[in-house]
Amino acid sequence: MIRFAGLMLSLYAATCLSGVASAADCTSPVAASDLIKPGTLVMSTNPTLPPLQYVDKSGALVGMRIELGTEIAKRLCLAPEFIKIEFDAMVPGLKGGRWDMIDTGIFFTPERAKLMQMIPYEMQAISISVQPDAKVAISKVEDLEGKTVGVEIGGFEETKAKAIDAELKKNGGHGMTIRTFDSFALAYQALRAGQVEAVVSIDGVAKEYADRGAFKRAVAGLYPTPVALALKSKPLADAVLKVLDAMQHDGSYKTLFDRYGVVPPSGALAVQGPAS
């Protein structure tokens, strides 16, 4: 259930000086009628996925996708503004006109592309994290049989966890106990506290926690799937696509992805969504 009351964590206006200068010094190709706020690209993000999107110790919103969203706004001559919100409010908020773009790496599915404009721009896969001193070895999804597993609610990871559970039961097992959390940060806290035995998350997040030495990435690279930027407006989606194409051409796209170890999809990028 979408819990808008109390769900909004905060409004973070992440407007960098270069973005302000660009918005003032050039004319945006995006019509004001295709934006929530004139002169501004309003983006939603759930900042619980280090190093892709998170709040650092100083309270600043940082990460690969934040940098990408800021650069897109700059090249569109718009001021970037980020709204920090939990994942399960993302799509309803986009459809309700609360923001222009979902900048959280929402997993692409044909069903979602019927609801909004999507630009698959990144590949992500699933990892299984355990405590560093976990006594039970997990090296494949079948080893999750009988385990209590944590996952962030409402996303691709929860869908895949349920699919694994169904497959285990289909093969004669009892399946898993799946516990959902409002964020991956809470899921990993539960793992640290021993309330769950594993966490199913995206590779980037699991790697970040493993690099810190906090948890061990037992399995990685499961179900590689494209993730996307999502937009309500087709003209805005087309304009964002042109920016991404330009970033690929000038090398800044690859530079950003390489710095964070993120894999781009093969082939040309494209907008996929309703005709209007």
Rank of each mutant, 00 (worst) to 15 (best):
A5K: 15
K114T: 15
V149A: 05
P47H: 07
Y223Q: 04
A239T: 05
G155D: 08
I119Q: 01
R112A: 11
P51Q: 12
P132A: 10
T255V: 11
D258Y: 02
P47G: 05
K162G: 00
P38C: 13
V199E: 07
G39C: 08
K234N: 05
S33E: 15
P80V: 00
A21H: 14
A220T: 13
R98F: 13
V55G: 00
D245V: 12
S233L: 08
G69L: 04
L11R: 14
R259D: 14
D143S: 03
A134E: 13
C16V: 12
A187P: 05
L17H: 12
T177F: 07
C77V: 03
L241M: 08
A185S: 14
P264C: 05
M64Q: 14
D211P: 01
S28Y: 08
Q195S: 10
Y188C: 05
P51I: 10
I83N: 07
A13Q: 14
T148G: 01
D250V: 06
G175R: 14
T255L: 13
I106C: 03
L231H: 02
G6E: 13
A206R: 10
T45M: 06
A218T: 01
G6A: 11
L76H: 03
T104G: 15
V42P: 00
L191K: 08
E158L: 02
A190V: 00
A198I: 07
S28K: 10
Y12S: 11
V130F: 01
Q124G: 09
P120V: 03
A113W: 06
G39R: 08
G204E: 08
I153P: 00
L269Y: 04
L229C: 02
Y188E: 10
V243W: 07
G59T: 05
I66R: 01
F82V: 00
F82I: 02
E197M: 07
A60W: 06
V219S: 04
A166M: 10
V20E: 15
N171Y: 08
G63L: 08
Q53V: 14
K57T: 12
D203T: 12
V200T: 12
D250P: 01
P274G: 09
G96C: 09
F181D: 03
L11S: 11
A32G: 03
Q53R: 12
K232V: 01
K216F: 08
E122P: 02
Q248W: 07
K170L: 12
I36K: 15
G261F: 07
G251Y: 09
A79Y: 01
A14W: 01
